[in-house]
Design a protein around this nucleic acid. Sequence first.
DNA 1: CGGTACATTGAAGGGGCTCAATCCACGTGG
DNA 2: CCACGTGGATTGAGCCCCTTCAATGTACCG
Lengths: 256, 256
Amino acid sequence: MGPQPPRTADPNLIDPLTRKLAQWASLSPEEVAVLRGLQSATRVVARKRDIITEGRKYDGLLVLIEGSAMRYRVLHDGRRQVLNIVLPGDFIGFPGCFFDTALYSIAALSETVVSAIPFAHLLRLFEAHPRLAATIFWSFSCEAAMYAEHLIDVGRRSARERVAHFLLELLTRLQAIGLADECSYQLPLTQELIGDALSLSLPRVNHALRQLREDDLVAIENRRVIIKDLEGLAALADFERTYLGRFQLAELLTKS
Amino acid sequence: MGPQPPRTADPNLIDPLTRKLAQWASLSPEEVAVLRGLQSATRVVARKRDIITEGRKYDGLLVLIEGSAMRYRVLHDGRRQVLNIVLPGDFIGFPGCFFDTALYSIAALSETVVSAIPFAHLLRLFEAHPRLAATIFWSFSCEAAMYAEHLIDVGRRSARERVAHFLLELLTRLQAIGLADECSYQLPLTQELIGDALSLSLPRVNHALRQLREDDLVAIENRRVIIKDLEGLAALADFERTYLGRFQLAELLTKS
DNA sequence: CGGTACATTGAAGGGGCTCAATCCACGTGG
DNA sequence: CCACGTGGATTGAGCCCCTTCAATGTACCG
């Protein structure tokens, strides 16, 4: 048997978490190994099943390895708000992981693979690999920033702007983990769920999507979104800032 | 001169940050000292002035010592969304502190005192006091959770529910730092700003407040909010969960 | 005493919701 | 192989909450 090429040579073989973190902070081989070690115990969850249920206790921090999920809450009268979409490489259980019971439910949008990180490992990480811990810390900051951006969406943007912004954010996030090409991707959710995420009714989401199609900004065929005019869409959604692109660790953290 | 009583005996002499963190994790005297040391360089910001301006670079993590502030963004066409209210003991600059430029602006609602924590100190904290770092980490989780709750507010609650929820959240947070008594507090912002926070027009905020007054749930006189029927208000706002009360460090973290 | 900032209230209008019907793609079992 | 069932997309009618615009009131301050 000849020497095997290093596995990390092919980006598709890197787990999504490592891939995501490596975008911003260069990781040493040792750190990559630690990350890989964190994601040992995996478990499969079927579509439409809860990965975590609000109010229940749960084991620790989870990482989504494969598939997609949504974080949501339903109010007493049945209204539902989707807080965000969870993609491979994202943590599940933040911000809830420091509470004694889950604050929100997480449901699988497709068949998913998740991996649990016990609290004990996490604490050890804080002490043994402060730089890695800081990087994870920082990825939580990104998540908080996405909540804030989502809030602006729902609070101050029209239906068309919201949908446009939503499609762009998904494009950017999926590209970051290699699940979208230059301008298209597979939509992981239904229009009803988009409505619950953007606080719009299903008919309104449909209407907004049709408008975007008629304006030749996007095309959607069979759940595949194709961005036809990125510039136009970004202008409409006030996405010029492309805040996701500005996700860069402050200099002091990347060194040290 | 006789022996002086320990300063920490009087809770009013403890800085708000320590007071906030001590609610959940008991801090050693050494850790209290470290926290105090972090908040050395203070600076005063006048009412209506920006503490941090969106897009600008800035020094590090700030802590609000005194007064109140708001985190906001204005869109190109002038619409403004207030993301949250910053109270004494809260960090300013999260989640932005890990980005190279500020994501949002922070404006002082009254004359405020802030203190800067240089990045270098923060990194040292990660290594020398992992338990303290974890506690701060956790306080960020609370903040993210408040964003999520705010999102549900704006997305799925009616005007009355939103205002009720907003008043209750403020009560809870102000009580935590000793700035509200059992059922009343001084409102730190105008109705216009409440509208920008809850994505409501000023007339609607006013209307909702009047309804709450007419239903004898609250009384407001001269900017002072008096909760007259906490139960009723909580029921209306779906605040039963009192999520802020569930802010408890997971057991593993409190020990260690 | 005038001026500014904020609160209050009303009239008119629109964007999005609810309710409901229809359509389409797909899988499944008879 | 086709009828049927199901989940999702599409589209329309009527309505309501909330917005915009505007006027007025009121407290405080220089």
